[in-house]
Computed example of a mutant assay.
Amino acid sequence: MPKTLNRVLLGLAGLVLLVLGGSVLAVGLGAPAPSWWIHDGRHDVLLDDSERTRWRDDAWWWPTVIAVLAVLLFLALWWLVSVLRRRRLAEVLVDTGDGAGALLRGRALQSALAEDASSLDGVNRAHVDLTGRRTAPRARMNLVLDPHADPSATLHALSAETLAHAKDSAHLDALPSEVRMRSVRHREKRVS
Protein backbone atom coordinates (compact mmCIF):
# COMPACT_ATOMS: atom_id res chain seq x y z
CA MET A 1 0.00 0.00 0.00
CA PRO A 2 1.47 3.39 -0.86
CA LYS A 3 2.81 5.34 2.07
CA THR A 4 0.65 8.41 1.35
CA LEU A 5 -2.58 6.41 1.16
CA ASN A 6 -1.67 4.63 4.39
CA ARG A 7 -1.11 7.94 6.18
CA VAL A 8 -4.35 9.44 4.86
CA LEU A 9 -6.37 6.40 5.94
CA LEU A 10 -4.72 6.35 9.36
CA GLY A 11 -5.36 10.07 9.76
CA LEU A 12 -9.03 9.76 8.80
CA ALA A 13 -9.58 6.75 11.06
CA GLY A 14 -7.85 8.54 13.92
CA LEU A 15 -9.89 11.71 13.39
CA VAL A 16 -13.21 9.81 13.33
CA LEU A 17 -12.27 7.84 16.46
CA LEU A 18 -11.09 11.00 18.22
CA VAL A 19 -14.29 12.93 17.46
CA LEU A 20 -16.60 10.05 18.43
CA GLY A 21 -14.61 9.05 21.51
CA GLY A 22 -14.22 12.65 22.65
CA SER A 23 -17.92 13.35 22.26
CA VAL A 24 -18.86 10.15 24.15
CA LEU A 25 -16.46 11.13 26.94
CA ALA A 26 -17.73 14.71 27.06
CA VAL A 27 -21.40 13.66 27.16
CA GLY A 28 -20.62 11.00 29.76
CA LEU A 29 -18.95 13.60 31.96
CA GLY A 30 -22.01 15.82 31.81
CA ALA A 31 -21.29 18.20 28.94
CA PRO A 32 -24.26 19.14 26.78
CA ALA A 33 -24.71 16.77 23.83
CA PRO A 34 -23.72 18.17 20.41
CA SER A 35 -26.50 18.89 17.93
CA TRP A 36 -25.48 15.93 15.74
CA TRP A 37 -25.35 13.51 18.67
CA ILE A 38 -27.77 10.59 18.35
CA HIS A 39 -28.70 10.45 22.04
CA ASP A 40 -30.22 12.96 24.39
CA GLY A 41 -28.05 12.99 27.45
CA ARG A 42 -25.77 11.41 29.96
CA HIS A 43 -27.99 8.52 31.02
CA ASP A 44 -29.22 7.55 27.55
CA VAL A 45 -28.12 4.05 26.40
CA LEU A 46 -26.47 3.37 23.07
CA LEU A 47 -29.14 0.93 21.85
CA ASP A 48 -32.47 0.72 23.65
CA ASP A 49 -34.92 -2.19 23.29
CA SER A 50 -36.84 -0.69 20.39
CA GLU A 51 -33.67 0.04 18.39
CA ARG A 52 -32.28 -3.47 18.99
CA THR A 53 -35.47 -5.29 17.98
CA ARG A 54 -36.64 -3.00 15.17
CA TRP A 55 -35.17 -5.10 12.32
CA ARG A 56 -35.47 -8.54 13.93
CA ASP A 57 -38.38 -9.69 11.73
CA ASP A 58 -36.76 -8.64 8.44
CA ALA A 59 -34.89 -11.54 6.83
CA TRP A 60 -32.31 -9.30 5.11
CA TRP A 61 -31.10 -7.45 8.23
CA TRP A 62 -28.77 -9.92 9.97
CA PRO A 63 -27.13 -11.32 6.81
CA THR A 64 -26.45 -7.74 5.71
CA VAL A 65 -24.97 -6.77 9.08
CA ILE A 66 -22.79 -9.89 9.15
CA ALA A 67 -21.62 -9.34 5.55
CA VAL A 68 -20.71 -5.69 6.20
CA LEU A 69 -18.82 -6.60 9.37
CA ALA A 70 -17.00 -9.42 7.54
CA VAL A 71 -15.94 -7.04 4.77
CA LEU A 72 -14.74 -4.48 7.34
CA LEU A 73 -12.79 -7.20 9.16
CA PHE A 74 -11.22 -8.38 5.89
CA LEU A 75 -10.22 -4.81 4.95
CA ALA A 76 -8.75 -4.19 8.41
CA LEU A 77 -6.71 -7.42 8.26
CA TRP A 78 -5.50 -6.61 4.73
CA TRP A 79 -4.45 -3.17 5.89
CA LEU A 80 -2.62 -4.62 8.90
CA VAL A 81 -0.75 -7.14 6.76
CA SER A 82 0.22 -4.49 4.21
CA VAL A 83 1.55 -2.22 6.96
CA LEU A 84 3.51 -4.96 8.73
CA ARG A 85 4.98 -6.53 5.57
CA ARG A 86 8.68 -5.84 5.14
CA ARG A 87 9.55 -3.83 2.12
CA ARG A 88 13.31 -4.20 2.37
CA LEU A 89 15.39 -7.33 2.24
CA ALA A 90 16.87 -8.17 5.64
CA GLU A 91 19.58 -10.56 4.46
CA VAL A 92 21.16 -11.96 1.31
CA LEU A 93 22.31 -15.56 1.00
CA VAL A 94 25.91 -15.65 -0.27
CA ASP A 95 27.22 -18.83 -1.89
CA THR A 96 30.58 -19.54 -0.25
CA GLY A 97 31.42 -22.40 -2.58
CA ASP A 98 31.63 -25.06 0.13
CA GLY A 99 27.97 -26.02 -0.03
CA ALA A 100 27.07 -24.12 3.12
CA GLY A 101 26.56 -20.42 2.55
CA ALA A 102 26.70 -17.23 4.52
CA LEU A 103 24.18 -14.55 5.30
CA LEU A 104 25.00 -10.97 4.39
CA ARG A 105 22.95 -8.27 6.05
CA GLY A 106 20.82 -6.41 3.56
CA ARG A 107 21.66 -3.04 5.09
CA ALA A 108 25.38 -3.74 4.70
CA LEU A 109 24.96 -4.44 0.98
CA GLN A 110 22.68 -1.40 0.63
CA SER A 111 25.20 0.92 2.26
CA ALA A 112 28.08 -0.53 0.22
CA LEU A 113 26.12 -0.01 -3.00
CA ALA A 114 25.18 3.54 -1.96
CA GLU A 115 28.79 4.41 -1.10
CA ASP A 116 30.12 3.02 -4.37
CA ALA A 117 27.42 4.82 -6.35
CA SER A 118 28.07 8.09 -4.50
CA SER A 119 31.77 7.91 -5.38
CA LEU A 120 31.03 7.85 -9.12
CA ASP A 121 31.76 11.00 -11.09
CA GLY A 122 28.69 13.20 -11.29
CA VAL A 123 26.71 11.54 -8.49
CA ASN A 124 25.85 13.86 -5.62
CA ARG A 125 23.87 11.39 -3.46
CA ALA A 126 22.69 7.81 -3.75
CA HIS A 127 20.05 5.81 -1.91
CA VAL A 128 19.63 2.04 -2.33
CA ASP A 129 16.86 -0.35 -1.24
CA LEU A 130 17.09 -4.11 -1.63
CA THR A 131 13.91 -6.04 -2.34
CA GLY A 132 13.12 -9.53 -3.60
CA ARG A 133 14.16 -12.83 -2.04
CA ARG A 134 17.35 -13.50 -0.16
CA THR A 135 18.53 -15.83 -2.91
CA ALA A 136 17.56 -13.38 -5.68
CA PRO A 137 17.81 -9.78 -4.47
CA ARG A 138 16.79 -6.76 -6.53
CA ALA A 139 18.17 -3.25 -6.10
CA ARG A 140 16.21 -0.01 -6.32
CA MET A 141 18.58 2.93 -6.63
CA ASN A 142 17.80 6.62 -6.49
CA LEU A 143 20.65 8.83 -7.70
CA VAL A 144 20.86 12.58 -7.41
CA LEU A 145 23.16 13.81 -10.16
CA ASP A 146 25.28 16.95 -10.26
CA PRO A 147 24.31 19.52 -12.91
CA HIS A 148 27.33 18.66 -15.07
CA ALA A 149 26.73 14.87 -15.00
CA ASP A 150 25.98 12.88 -18.13
CA PRO A 151 23.18 10.42 -17.23
CA SER A 152 24.17 7.81 -19.83
CA ALA A 153 27.83 7.81 -18.73
CA THR A 154 26.76 7.62 -15.09
CA LEU A 155 24.44 4.70 -15.82
CA HIS A 156 27.17 2.89 -17.74
CA ALA A 157 29.68 3.40 -14.88
CA LEU A 158 27.06 2.31 -12.35
CA SER A 159 26.33 -0.96 -14.14
CA ALA A 160 29.94 -1.69 -15.16
CA GLU A 161 31.55 -0.86 -11.82
CA THR A 162 29.22 -0.59 -8.84
CA LEU A 163 26.62 -3.23 -9.65
CA ALA A 164 29.17 -5.64 -11.15
CA HIS A 165 31.37 -5.29 -8.05
CA ALA A 166 28.42 -5.93 -5.71
CA LYS A 167 27.28 -8.93 -7.77
CA ASP A 168 30.77 -10.44 -7.79
CA SER A 169 31.38 -9.75 -4.09
CA ALA A 170 28.15 -11.42 -3.01
CA HIS A 171 28.54 -14.27 -5.56
CA LEU A 172 25.16 -13.52 -7.07
CA ASP A 173 24.10 -14.85 -10.46
CA ALA A 174 22.34 -11.59 -11.24
CA LEU A 175 21.47 -8.33 -9.50
CA PRO A 176 18.53 -6.78 -11.38
CA SER A 177 18.33 -3.09 -10.66
CA GLU A 178 15.97 -0.21 -11.15
CA VAL A 179 17.78 3.11 -11.29
CA ARG A 180 16.07 6.47 -10.99
CA MET A 181 18.05 9.61 -11.64
CA ARG A 182 17.29 13.23 -11.03
CA SER A 183 19.44 16.30 -10.96
CA VAL A 184 20.29 18.18 -7.83
CA ARG A 185 18.33 21.36 -7.25
CA HIS A 186 20.00 24.39 -5.83
CA ARG A 187 18.22 27.32 -4.28
CA GLU A 188 18.44 30.60 -6.03
CA LYS A 189 20.80 33.04 -4.40
CA ARG A 190 20.30 36.74 -4.60
CA VAL A 191 23.36 38.56 -5.83
CA SER A 192 23.58 42.25 -5.16
Rank of each mutant, 00 (worst) to 15 (best):
Thr96Val: 06
Leu17Tyr: 07
Arg52Gly: 00
Arg107Asn: 04
Arg52Ser: 00
Val68Gln: 00
Leu77Ala: 11
His171Lys: 14
His186Thr: 14
Ser169Gln: 00
Val83Asn: 13
Ala112Gln: 09
Arg134Gln: 04
Leu163Trp: 11
Gly132Arg: 01
Ala108Cys: 10
Trp37Met: 02
Ala114Thr: 06
Gly132Leu: 02
Trp62Asn: 00
His43Gln: 06
Ala114His: 02
Asp40Gly: 15
Gly132His: 02
Ala102Phe: 05
Val45Arg: 11
Asp173Pro: 02
Trp36Leu: 08
Val83Ser: 13
Arg86Asn: 05
Gly101Lys: 12
Ala67Lys: 04
Pro2Phe: 15
Val65Met: 08
Arg190Gly: 12
Val123Lys: 02
Val65Lys: 11
Ser159Met: 14
Val191Phe: 11
Ala164Trp: 01
Arg140Gln: 08
Gly11Ile: 14
Glu51Ala: 03
Leu109Glu: 05
Arg87Val: 15
Arg180Asn: 14
Ser82Ala: 11
Thr154Ile: 07
Lys3Phe: 04
His39Arg: 13
Ser50Phe: 06
Leu158Phe: 09
Leu109Phe: 07
Leu155Trp: 07
His39Cys: 01
His127Val: 03
His186Gly: 12
Leu158Asp: 07
Thr135Gln: 10
Lys167Arg: 15
Val16Met: 15
Arg187Gly: 12
Ser23His: 07
Val94Gly: 06
Leu9Val: 02
Leu5Glu: 10
Ser82Phe: 01
Trp62Ser: 00
Ser183Thr: 08
Arg190Cys: 06
Asp121Leu: 08
Thr131Ile: 05
Glu115Ser: 08
Ala76Val: 14
Leu18Asp: 12
Thr162Val: 12
Ser23Trp: 03
Val144Asn: 06
Leu89Ser: 03
Val144Lys: 07
Thr96Leu: 08
Asp58Val: 01
His43Lys: 09
His165Tyr: 00
Phe74Arg: 08
Val71His: 01
Trp60Tyr: 09
Gly28Val: 13
Gly101Leu: 11
Asn6Ala: 12
Val81Ile: 14
Val65Asp: 05
Leu163Phe: 14
Leu130Asn: 00
Val8Tyr: 09
Ala157Trp: 06
Ile38Met: 12
Leu120Asn: 03
Val81Thr: 06
Trp79Asp: 12
Glu51Ile: 01
Val65Arg: 10
Ser82Leu: 04
His39Tyr: 04
Leu93Trp: 07
